[in-house]
Design a binder for these strands. Structure first.
Lengths: 236, 236
DNA sequence: GAGTGGTCTAGACCACGAG
DNA sequence: TCGTGGTCTAGACCACTCA
């Protein structure tokens, strides 16, 4: 028995604006009337109107720009991260990479199964789709496995992939940190898919660990598992 | 260059309360002072204080109860959904199941690859950990594959699992619908992990489709992929 | 400087829970 | 009935963008 409360004002307003967006009355890229104007139109306070907009923002329908206005988000193609694949990000995207040298420590050394203070190379990657940031990745590789000259891209499957025998991926949903939100230019109320990916070679040595952040409104992750003849059990 | 703005009041207050929770000054299960009291203590308006609490709520640190107060959430063991496994939910959990007969339609018939109006059995499952709801699943099975007498549990691996040759899982992050939030007793600001799982037999026939909702603050999904000898490519 | 969104205030009134 | 959180108001002032 689900109790259905009377819709609050902000939900009513959000529903109205949502239908205007989905029916095309408000077009992608278009600027909404200013908040005081909308508040007057709906005869509510600006606070209530802003609460309504916050709902749409969390759905990824509108985008707020301080000093400029609220805009209907252009429909972005939903991208799919392919789990278990040998390259972490769809290679057709434009990617900005920053390489840093650091030493393993805390959770990072646990993830990579290396002692503290082991030399690592970090690749900080921001992928873009048409000028707008799309996903964020922090990739860690033990220093002795990272090609020395890779200053503008991370090791490709040709370099590291052949070693990989097993990939473990852990997916979780959460809200972005303020840094992630500003890097990806998303609302901090929009859920992100956080994927921790650990790749190991045949000996069990971890050759790569990656932390991927995908905005929930435009990215999925897909995983495929094959079961041969009798159901093979996953190891505990 | 990340711009670091001065922390807003609500963030400052949230940070203070967060540290009180993590250091144990506020203990799990404990009730926080009332909102007017906290507002007076921090010398802010109740609106601002509530905004601070909303941040903690989205992190899963506190729980709001209308008419009772705000409570520190008891630390719940983080559960892991095992991707690719032959049973959709950890079997040790207590599960409430409701069975319904319906006909395929729209997205559902696409998912199951059956014509519209095909007879289906729906299993609506709510799993519990110690009296509190933990995850939500809607599982659909073609009627002719569902055991007729299964009124209180869905087909087990012994019944359906042996048929399964391939499992495809799509994971996405979003905010819960109001219904999901009230069923799972979570804040509607807390991200959930939504997993769509389609299992097919060796002939490619879909034997089960499941929609799983896992609260982001207490559940992960884990996927393991093995690559034999030379890197096997995933099919497009 | 004009217009926009971002944050905050000091209240009001309603809905829920428990005694 | 009383204390709690939920929603809302009508302002104020600050920060950002653009001309």
């Amino acid at each position: 028995m689900v109790i259905q409360p009377v819709l609050s004002l902000r939900h009513t307003i959000a529903d109205d604006l949502r239908s205007q967006i989905t029916t095309g009355v408000l077009k992608p890229g278009e600027r909404l009337p200013s908040e005081p104007q909308l508040a007057a139109r709906y005869e509510v306070s600006t606070v209530t109107l802003r609460n309504a907009l916050a709902l749409l923002q969390a759905e990824g329908l509108i985008e707020k720009n301080h000093g400029k206005g609220n805009f209907v988000r252009r429909l972005r193609r939903r991208l799919t991260y392919e789990g278990g694949a040998l390259t972490p990000i769809v290679p057709t995207l434009h990617v900005t990479v920053r390489t840093t040298q650091l030493r393993a420590q805390g959770a990072l050394s646990t993830l990579l199964k290396v002692p503290s203070r082991t030399l690592l190379t970090e690749y900080l990657c921001v992928s873009h789709v048409r000028e707008s940031p799309h996903s964020l990745a922090r990739i860690y590789v033990p220093r002795d496995l990272a090609p020395a000259e890779s200053s503008c891209h991370w090791p490709k499957s040709a370099e590291l992939g052949l070693r990989i025998a097993e990939i473990r991926e852990k997916a979780s949903a959460r809200l972005p940190t303020p840094e992630e939100a500003s890097t990806l230019r998303i609302s901090s109320a929009l859920a992100v898919l956080a994927i921790t990916r650990v790749s190991a070679d045949a000996t069990g040595r971890v050759v790569e660990a990656a932390l991927l952040i995908l905005p929930g409104d435009r990215a999925d992750a897909r995983f495929t598992t094959h079961h041969t003849t009798e159901g093979r059990r996953a190891e505990g």
